[in-house]
Design a protein around this nucleic acid. Structure first.
Lengths: 209, 209
DNA sequence: ACCGTTAACCTAACGGTGCTAACCTCCTCA
DNA sequence: TGAGGAGGTTAGCACCGTTAGGTTAACGGT
């Protein structure tokens, strides 16, 4: 928990049409504090405001409430996850290799940004309808479906249903990622080896069903 | 969020050696409120105290802090999960059937007690060492290893390493459970069918690796 | 050059939170 | 018949998310 300093805000007020500049600054501050403290609840509105050199209520000029703020941070991070995976997948030699690389990249993203991953995948979305993070996440999932689809088209995954197979693959990969985040002290053995084993099992399993 | 009533405590004070009775009452109240509100943060110490007809500081006579309280609720629930699975597994006809039943029971427990599952598996254990919930969870996991072991011994799972296979099976089953909890509005299709498919993939995958 | 409008903030405050220090009260045992 | 400790209480701290309402400064119009 980062206590507020109590010092008065010193940020020079934005010009007339530049209100959105603070908005970006707030999002950056929130994201940094999230990664520093390790949890959404531990990042207070006041701490974010402090870092932006602004008073707490100023946040509410740009975001409806705390959840909306973090939902937007979430959305940003989702896009980052997606491009992280897309970047890794470009090194693939064939569709099946690409699928494995995507899976491994997914896990490494989660374990290297555990708090972001928590926010994205393990958080509580409450009753929020207009969920931008969810939309970006769906895009990312659809990229995976396409990747599976390419495998099916080349026969690398047999005659599996791409959507169904994607659900299973995502679940499996997410499962290992989230458990390693939740229970870091569990005896997982060597991480990369476990991930590879998981990918083996999932792909072989999809192939033979 | 359940607001405190502000009414004075009316609970008749426990007798000399019966301090632990309130402890149990507190745990029950916390568990109920957790299931009602849907999240640990939404259950305040004051709300728990209110329900027990006791003032808030009385809680701290029995628990070090809020986290310790919910950690104990967690531990209770873990044992419940374990016995839930054990009970279901008794209907099994053979080791492999038992493994499938255990998996399906695991998922159904999670989806029927989502908030408890969240607390158990998707929560943040902070830096807590003496984690009783973790201990009970480990026991439950070991029961699964034993079940896998029986499959291996009868040849139903080939020559797989029971521990490694259990890690993969647990991850897969947890993955599907936690994702369905986190994203209930996602297009999962028919739940039981997806779970069965997941079990097919995992078991076939373990068999052929 | 002045004026009204308004975007972009601020101050003060409300009710809630986890948690602690200090007090009280009643039961038990010597 | 007291002493003492178990099992509470009252009062209060520092912080939380959030809101109502005031302040300041940049703009367009005249």
């Amino acid at each position: 928990m980062i206590p507020p300093t109590g010092t008065t805000a010193t940020r020079t007020r934005a010009k007339r049409g530049d209100g959105d500049k603070l908005r970006e600054v707030i999002l950056d501050a929130a994201e940094h504090l999230l990664l520093e403290t390790g949890s959404q609840e531990a990042v207070s509105i006041r701490a974010i405001a402090d870092r932006c050199e602004v008073t707490a209520p100023a946040i509410y000029l740009h975001f409806a409430d705390k959840e909306a703020l973090f939902l937007e941070v979430c959305s940003r991070r989702f896009r980052e996850l997606d491009s992280w995976i897309e970047a890794a997948s470009r090194k693939a030699t064939d569709p099946l290799d690409e699928l494995r690389i995507r899976g491994a990249a997914y896990v490494s993203f989660g374990l290297e940004h555990p708090e972001a991953y928590r926010l994205l995948m393990m958080g509580r979305r409450e009753g929020r309808i207009d969920d931008p993070g969810m939309e970006a996440g769906r895009d990312s999932f659809l990229h995976m479906v396409e990747s599976v689809d390419r495998c099916v088209k080349t026969g690398a995954l047999g005659g599996a249903d791409p959507y169904q197979a994607s659900l299973v693959l995502w679940s499996g990969i997410h499962g290992i990622t989230s458990l390693m985040i939740s229970f870091p002290n569990f005896e997982w053995g060597e991480r990369d080896q476990l991930v590879e084993h998981m990918l083996d099992v999932l792909i072989e399993g999809v192939l033979s069903t």
